[in-house]
Amino acid sequence: MINRPSFVSAILEWRPTWLLARLALTSAYLLGGIVKLTDWQGAVAEQAHFGMSPPAFWAGLTIALELIGPVLILTGRLVWLGAGMLGVFTLLAAFTANAFWAMPAGQDRFMATNAFFEHIGLIGGFIAIAMIAQRREANA
């Protein structure tokens, strides 16, 4: 048995922790989807900025992914699908928006490198959430 502080065990065993962890992981996507939905022209302009064509199609797809993925994860229905959607989306976004390897050395490259690996960390979080959900379903 692992010897961990009792307060850590209490937090991990507290029923709302599972929901709060999923909300924390998906909050940026929910917010991004809502902001884009309420600012359609800005969402289209963002896609055009990254060279996505046609930008309106990609804006609509981005909004759908940023809203549907978190809803699946938060409701506990098809968590694997929501996590997979957001994981693939995040990987594609990392390569599209943070191509640090194509930048000259300097502050912009440093920031893009950090952002790229932060995206990789999020992908790990989606994998972990899918794995935990699968185990929870198997133990239910």
Results as ranks from 00 to 15, higher is better:
residue 45 A to N: 14
residue 98 N to R: 10
residue 83 A to N: 01
residue 9 S to R: 15
residue 28 A to K: 13
residue 27 S to Q: 12
residue 33 G to F: 03
residue 52 M to V: 15
residue 66 E to R: 08
residue 103 M to P: 07
residue 74 L to R: 01
residue 28 A to Y: 15
residue 36 K to H: 07
residue 97 A to V: 07
residue 21 A to V: 10
residue 41 Q to E: 08
residue 89 F to H: 09
residue 90 T to R: 01
residue 91 L to C: 08
residue 47 Q to L: 11
residue 17 T to R: 12
residue 98 N to E: 10
residue 104 P to Q: 14
residue 87 G to H: 01
residue 94 A to L: 05
residue 37 L to I: 00
residue 76 G to N: 01
residue 31 L to H: 12
residue 103 M to N: 09
residue 43 A to M: 03
residue 73 I to S: 03
residue 79 V to W: 03
residue 12 L to Q: 11
residue 40 W to Y: 02
residue 68 I to Y: 03
residue 67 L to T: 09
residue 27 S to A: 15
residue 41 Q to V: 12
residue 104 P to T: 10
residue 79 V to M: 01
residue 30 L to Q: 09
residue 83 A to K: 01
residue 37 L to F: 05
residue 69 G to H: 03
residue 16 P to C: 03
residue 44 V to M: 00
residue 79 V to Y: 05
residue 54 P to A: 07
residue 81 L to S: 07
residue 35 V to Q: 13
residue 61 L to S: 10
residue 97 A to W: 13
residue 104 P to L: 15
residue 91 L to P: 06
residue 50 F to D: 06
residue 28 A to T: 13
residue 20 L to E: 09
residue 87 G to M: 01
residue 20 L to V: 10
residue 52 M to F: 11
residue 60 G to H: 00
residue 72 L to E: 00
residue 73 I to Q: 07
residue 45 A to G: 09
residue 89 F to S: 01
residue 98 N to I: 04
residue 60 G to P: 00
residue 98 N to A: 14
residue 72 L to R: 06
residue 54 P to W: 03
residue 51 G to D: 03
residue 39 D to T: 11
residue 33 G to E: 04
residue 64 A to N: 02
residue 79 V to T: 07
residue 62 T to R: 05
residue 101 W to M: 06
residue 50 F to E: 05
residue 9 S to K: 13
residue 44 V to H: 01
residue 35 V to G: 14
residue 72 L to D: 06
residue 68 I to S: 04
residue 63 I to A: 02
residue 54 P to N: 07
residue 67 L to F: 06
residue 66 E to F: 03
residue 31 L to N: 13
residue 93 A to S: 12
residue 86 L to N: 02
residue 87 G to F: 00
residue 83 A to M: 01
residue 69 G to T: 05
residue 97 A to G: 14
residue 69 G to Y: 02
residue 101 W to Y: 05
residue 23 L to I: 15
residue 73 I to C: 02
residue 65 L to K: 04
residue 79 V to Q: 04
residue 44 V to R: 00
residue 85 M to K: 05
residue 101 W to H: 08
residue 56 A to S: 14
residue 61 L to F: 13
residue 22 R to T: 04
residue 90 T to G: 01
residue 33 G to L: 03
residue 102 A to K: 12
residue 51 G to Q: 04
residue 36 K to R: 11
residue 32 G to Q: 04
residue 38 T to K: 13
residue 79 V to R: 05
residue 44 V to L: 03
residue 101 W to V: 08
residue 80 W to D: 14
residue 17 T to C: 09
residue 19 L to N: 09
residue 33 G to A: 06
residue 31 L to R: 15
residue 87 G to Q: 00
residue 63 I to M: 04
residue 48 A to I: 10
residue 88 V to I: 06
residue 56 A to E: 13
residue 27 S to I: 09
residue 68 I to P: 06
residue 20 L to R: 05
residue 87 G to S: 02
residue 50 F to N: 13
residue 89 F to G: 00
residue 19 L to M: 09
residue 84 G to N: 04
residue 36 K to D: 10
residue 15 R to G: 09
residue 77 R to N: 14
residue 24 A to F: 10
residue 19 L to A: 08
residue 71 V to P: 07
residue 54 P to Y: 05
residue 57 F to Q: 01
residue 25 L to S: 00
residue 46 E to V: 08
residue 85 M to N: 01
residue 29 Y to G: 09
residue 17 T to S: 11
residue 71 V to A: 13
residue 95 F to K: 08
residue 58 W to D: 02
residue 86 L to R: 07
residue 68 I to M: 13
residue 83 A to W: 02
residue 44 V to F: 00
residue 14 W to G: 03
residue 41 Q to P: 08
residue 77 R to C: 11
residue 43 A to N: 04
residue 26 T to F: 06
